[in-house]
Nucleic acid binder design. Structure first.
Lengths: 230, 230
DNA sequence: ATTGAAAATTAGTATGTACTAAATTCGTTT
DNA sequence: AAACGAATTTAGTACATACTAATTTTCAAT
């Protein structure tokens, strides 16, 4: 259903901003719905007017569809490229952590630059030495070379009832401070956690993690996506 | 004598073209002399007029000194950056060959893009896992973090007299076809070669390489830089 | 139905880097 | 010394991407 990520259709090389916009649009429209100019501007750190201009260019290139005053969404080709960038980004993160002793709180910035510079060849070599991983260090799924990836339904730790035992699968933040804190608390993908108690009004949760007692605030508990059971 | 390659003097981030120009200027002026606009244009694949414009910008940034109608040379700061790019380029090549099964004929293009995208941190990690190598896969010296590197006087294989035994130290071409051919013939850095005979008028040399008899044309023999002895 | 705030777009501008075509300078040859 | 060809620079333009300020559109509230 999805075209090859490494399709060799002859096309002018994409610029770095183009790749960034496509990735951002993709990530802001999980459902494939319209993405608002303001949201895009916020995520990319740009003025809304700049985003409008770029969206026009993306449309002319057949990478996005612009509904004036309503938003953008990606074309098939645009989505193909976005998924290609996502594969690159996440594989690079996995590689840096696996082979160059990066930690999950430092890989994001590095991958953000490298994803635009590596060749398809290098990406596939990284995938190979990593054993074709399906998840990156944050638990985000890595699309395969065809743009397909596993989708799981996860529950935020903040929504897990007291008494339940879950496994952390994904950390939904890129903020390095938060990531460092979570790692220090042992709250990383793969960890099995039992919720001992939950305070109401966005209060903290008491956890049992590997025999130890831990407390996490509501904000972080929201970002820890889990699956039920061990 | 040379400033830190990883100096953290606050400066606006350099653009990719800027880095490319500085590296090219450095490489075209081994002696530190003036580099001609045309030569630069040729190496960079640009129109001379474009080069003139860029040189002007480099001068304004204090990275190069322009003597109108005569040429350019680098300032200390420009040279510092050029050496930093050279270190990056060559370490990346060494890394790709050492850890990702690249061959010496394919690394150049990949390194050419990556050298602009990696962080100083990543470069130093690569250097570390490689054991701080001094030469890249082509035998080119890798500047250290201070911009210093070993300079050796080498003899082109084409100038080696019959009967002499030399060790190949460096292949002075980036052309992938030529590099592939040389590798297939076993003519790579570290190989010990005895010249059996040399034909005059830019003719081929007969060699003895690891017990085998080989013939190399003059053009390639010019590009193989050697040191005397085994 | 009107209005007002938020969102989005247009208009006009700046920057970096490239181009072509025209003009200038240099250095050598006569 | 003059003149010519090669090298270089200038002039003028284009394109991608960003910005601010001004304008327009949308939508929800009255």
């Amino acid at each position: 259903m999805e075209a090859e990520l490494t399709s060799d259709i002859a096309r002018q090389p994409l610029t770095r901003p183009t790749e960034d916009y496509l990735k951002a649009i993709y990530q802001l429209s999980n459902d494939g719905g319209l993405v608002a100019t303001t949201d895009l501007a916020l995520v990319l750190g740009l003025a809304p007017a700049s985003v409008t201009g770029m969206i026009k260019r993306l449309s002319e290139q057949g990478l996005a569809l612009h509904e004036r005053y309503r938003g953008v969404r990606l074309t098939h080709e645009g989505r193909r490229i976005a998924l290609r960038m996502l594969r690159r980004h996440r594989l690079i993160e996995a590689y840096l952590v696996g082979f160059l002793a990066y930690t999950w709180d430092t890989v994001h910035a590095e991958a953000e630059r490298l994803e635009h510079a590596v060749s398809d060849d290098l990406i596939e070599r990284m995938a190979q030495v990593l054993g074709h991983p399906i998840f990156d260090p944050h638990g985000d799924p890595i699309p395969d070379a065809h743009g397909r990836f596993a989708e799981f339904v996860h529950v935020p730790l903040a929504d897990v009832a007291a008494g339940e035992t879950v496994t952390i699968r994904r950390a939904d933040t890129r903020d390095d401070g938060r990531l460092r804190f979570l790692a220090a608390e042992g709250l990383v993908p793969g960890t099995v956690v039992t919720v001992i108690a939950r305070q109401p009004y966005n209060g903290p949760s008491s956890l049992e993690v590997g025999g130890e007692r831990r407390i996490v605030g509501h904000e972080l508990a929201t970002m820890l996506l889990c699956s039920r059971g061990t």
